[in-house]
């Protein structure tokens, strides 16, 4: 099967500045492809080439096998684009905004009306149908923009930093929305400079820096290679002082913290007392899964009683979600 996106030695210069350097990228159909890299890495440049907005300096880019430079109109039919900014018109209501772009894609009037309703429903903006676009919140504009990019039912959605500026709940909603779109059979290409943000919603990831692709593939694989150490949460019922001593001297433990204690504060110095326990220790662990098993065996062999031993999965966003109720 032809991949939905394929670039071969794609290069783009801005004067002497090399924005893309022989980029070879493949996105399989049906994937949610996360495109990650620091500022100025070339993500937007790649996306603009794929949406026919920017001609490449050399090399080739194809969408569903169609060349971006040779048949731009065919490519535009295949691609829905949501840029990293939101273009608004004053004096325009949400439905008019969608209606205008529907016209621009030559969708017949009757189908357009129906589509506007469906898409507003999909992005949860049906109640904002008659509101001026300018009055929508950032997250709502983002969703409206997403609806806009889907007006012509494209096979590939290219979303440039759709999650930037969204609060964690809106991000979760976006993630759910993307899953829904994927279930509808769309391929989604999405960019960000935060790895964790993409890790949770993508099936594939490509890492780009200074116009070069550093790694690409399925998320789990990339994560394993990209995250050399993990945080292990250990809850000690008895023998906390001994556990701390063992962990501090363990070669794979880069850093050890007591949960709740501020780093470097005085009480960190005194040995842990089981009377005040159970204590929770957070260890920054650099070893692999086997080393982690060995660590647990060692602790137990040394008489430390453990009630919880797990890699931390939650991050700040989970905590935020517990606290907020997300009423928009």
């Amino acid at each position: 099967m032809t991949p939905i996106v394929e670039t071969r030695d794609l290069t783009r210069r801005y004067g002497p500045n090399l924005a893309l350097d022989h980029l070879n990228l493949t996105v399989p159909e049906g994937a949610i492809f996360g495109f990650i890299g620091p500022n100025g890495a070339g993500k937007t440049t790649t996306m603009r080439i794929l949406t026919t907005l920017l001609p490449p300096t050399s090399g080739e880019a194809r969408v569903a096998g169609v060349s971006v430079t040779r048949e731009p109109r065919t490519v535009r039919r295949l691609v829905g684009f949501m840029p990293d900014f939101f273009g608004v018109y004053d004096n325009m209501k949400s439905w008019e905004y969608l209606d205008f772009f529907g016209r621009s894609y030559g969708i017949p009037a009757q189908r357009r009306q129906q589509l506007i309703g469906e898409l507003l429903e999909l992005v949860d903006l049906a109640h904002k149908r008659d509101e001026p676009v300018m009055s929508l919140s950032r997250g709502m504009k983002q969703r409206l923009s997403l609806a806009r990019s889907m007006m012509h039912d494209p096979r590939l959605l290219i979303l440039d930093e759709p999650a930037s500026g969204l609060d964690p709940r809106a991000r979760i909603e976006l993630r759910e929305l993307l899953k829904e779109l994927r279930a509808m059979g769309k391929t989604i290409m999405i960019s960000s400079h935060i790895l964790t943000e993409l890790a949770e919603m993508c099936t594939h990831i490509g890492i780009i820096e200074r116009g070069k692709l550093l790694a690409a593939g399925e998320v789990q694989e990339i994560l394993r290679t990209m995250r050399p150490h993990r945080i292990v949460e250990i809850r000690v019922v008895a023998g906390a002082a001994r556990a701390e001593e063992l962990l501090r001297t363990h070669p794979d433990v880069l850093e050890l913290r007591r949960e709740g204690a501020r780093a470097g504060s005085d009480d960190e110095k005194a040995p842990l007392d089981d009377e005040t326990g159970p204590h929770t220790l957070l260890a920054d662990f650099a070893g692999d899964e086997h080393a982690l098993g060995d660590l647990l065996a060692l602790l137990i062999a040394e008489g430390v009683r453990i009630s919880h031993f797990a890699e931390q999965s939650g991050d700040l966003e989970d905590i935020f979600l517990h606290v907020t109720k997300g009423i928009v």
């Binding site: 949406t51 840029p83 273009g87 018109y89 772009f101 621009s104 806009r148 012509h152």
Partner: peptide, 16 residues
């Protein structure tokens, strides 16, 4: 004005 409002790219990327 379309360029300023950043809507120009959207027009160009459409079938217009």
């Amino acid at each position: 004005g379309e360029k300023e409002r950043q809507t120009y790219d959207l027009l160009v990327a459409s079938l217009l």
